[in-house]
């Protein structure tokens, strides 16, 4: 799980913060901190699909699932479980 968190964090830091990660905490809201915009959500969804094979359903496109590193990790874990994949297999 830590590996997933790190990987998601790397993606967010590189892609949306352009390497500036000093202040980002894992429970910081992407929206409230101006990290992500409407296109950013699509980039994030694309990344989840490409990297983890996870398809985000329309009704799952909500801040509860995607708006912080912690929320992303929890959502991803649940999706991977749903898909029958063990989180440990994803690195």
């Amino acid at each position: 799980m830590q590996a997933i968190a790190q990987e998601l964090r790397n993606f967010v830091v590189n892609n949306f913060l352009f390497g500036q990660n000093e202040k980002l905490r894992n429970d910081d809201s992407f929206f409230d901190n101006g990290i992500i915009d409407s296109t950013g959500i699509l980039e994030l969804v694309g990344f989840l699909h490409e990297r983890f094979g996870v398809h985000v359903e329309d009704q799952e496109l909500i801040p509860e699932n995607l708006d912080s590193i912690d929320r992303l990790v929890a959502y991803l874990q649940a999706k991977l479980r749903e898909n029958g994949q063990a989180s440990a297999s994803v690195h």
């Binding site: 929206f31 915009d37 409407s38 296109t39 959500i41 699509l42 969804v45 329309d58 009704q59 496109l61 909500i62 801040p63 509860e64």
Partner: peptide, 15 residues
């Protein structure tokens, strides 16, 4: 605008 088309109401509300 594709980025707007795919958003849920929750996100639209915020953006």
């Amino acid at each position: 605008m594709k980025n707007i088309q795919s958003q849920s109401p929750e996100y639209l509300k915020r953006f």
